[in-house]
Design a protein around this nucleic acid. Structure first.
Length: 321
DNA sequence: AATCAGCTCAACCGCGAAAGG
DNA sequence: ACCTTTCGCGGTTGAGCTGAT
């Protein structure tokens, strides 16, 4: 038996909204609010539309603080970094970008940013082949490099970071090529994954990796030359890793909340390590948004920890915006 | 000028989660 | 504890636009 439709699709108008309908909806919401019931709203507002359609129209187009287009480089970075870390959770990503909607960010990624990332990846690929050509005996050698150089096609698959998205069936995963390509574009902070690794590993039925030695890439050029982490592992050390606080979290939480240096995330689940309670709370909140299940398990396992600050139980993400 | 292909983005669809009875 | 209703989300679609031929 199928799911009952939310409304009678034969009796409501569908397709593009007219200016008159926009004005009806806008003025109704302005005067009465949504009333917490989108299903009943179209009837009250005199609209022959499905409630879901009204909600979508309001959230994605009529809401007063909406921005369309004109994405900045900083917004690109945030989208790419978050996509690499949490996958296609557009509502969370959009919540970090004031005035952007999940639909808008999703469209922007699918139509523009993904291609941009792919182009960057190909550029990165070219340079990496050149690097290997110039240094044929360097595998396992220099700073920040481990293991033999793999063909780029293999590297791409194996270097795709095991994002929380791919570790959870509840989240639609990003394709390997996507993650790989924008990993080259805006190297996602592997520290995010390092932070989540112990918990995620438990979900996978495998042991958590040993606490990694934090290695800081001194430049993007060094990142570009970095090899893949071990296949199939949640890598503890990834030579290409830039510290998370260098990459994007300051943009999300504010620089002042982060302790200096790169050791911050390197040795396990970061919230447990933070001495500063405010910073701990902020980061736990962020983690709770991204890894709610993992956090629940973590609370249970470490409820006694002195420096713990439990985030509020509901509406976690709202306070981050 | 006409046609076609590719792109963009608003809107739709269906699912899972949350809320309420 | 169960069922129903509603919400919110992510994936997908397709009409309209734009540029190339």
């Amino acid at each position: 038996m199928g799911r009952a439709p939310c409304c009678d699709k034969t009796s409501v108008k569908r397709g593009p909204w007219s200016p008159e309908e926009d004005e009806l909806l806008r003025s109704y919401v302005h005067n009465h609010g949504t009333g917490g019931n989108w299903i009943a709203l179209p009837h009250k507002a005199g609209l022959n539309r499905c409630g879901k359609s009204c909600r979508l129209r309001w959230l994605n187009y009529l809401r007063p603080d909406i921005k369309h287009g004109g994405y900045t480089e900083q917004e690109d970075r945030i989208i790419c970094s978050l996509y690499n870390s949490i996958g296609s959770r557009w509502s969370i990503i959009a919540s970090k970008l004031p005035g952007r909607t999940d639909n808008d960010v999703k469209n922007y990624w699918n139509t523009k940013l993904k291609k941009k990332a792919t182009a960057m990846h190909q550029h990165h690929h070219h340079h990496q082949e050149y690097y290997h050509h110039q240094q044929p005996h360097s595998s396992g050698g220099g700073r920040g490099r481990r293991g033999a150089a793999a063909p780029r096609s293999q590297q791409c698959a194996s270097s795709m970071q095991p994002s929380p998205a791919s570790a959870s069936s509840a989240v639609t995963t990003a394709s390997a090529s996507d993650a790989c390509s924008f990993g080259a574009m805006y190297p996602s902070p592997p520290t995010t994954l390092q932070a989540a690794a112990p918990v995620l590993a438990r979900y996978d039925g495998t042991l958590p990796p040993a606490p990694p030695q934090q290695q800081q890439a001194s430049s993007l050029a060094e990142f570009s030359a970095a090899p893949a982490p071990p296949t199939g592992a949640i890598s503890g050390t990834w030579a290409g890793g830039l510290p998370l606080d260098d990459m994007f979290l300051p943009e999300l939480l504010g620089d002042s909340e982060f302790p200096p240096g790169g050791d911050f995330f390197g040795t396990g689940f970061a919230p447990l390590l933070l001495q500063d309670r405010a910073a701990s709370a902020s980061l736990q909140e962020l983690s709770a948004c991204y890894f709610p299940n993992a956090q629940a398990e973590m609370w249970a396992a470490a409820d006694h920890h002195v420096n713990y600050v439990k985030p509020p139980p509901a509406g976690l993400c709202h306070s981050l915006t």
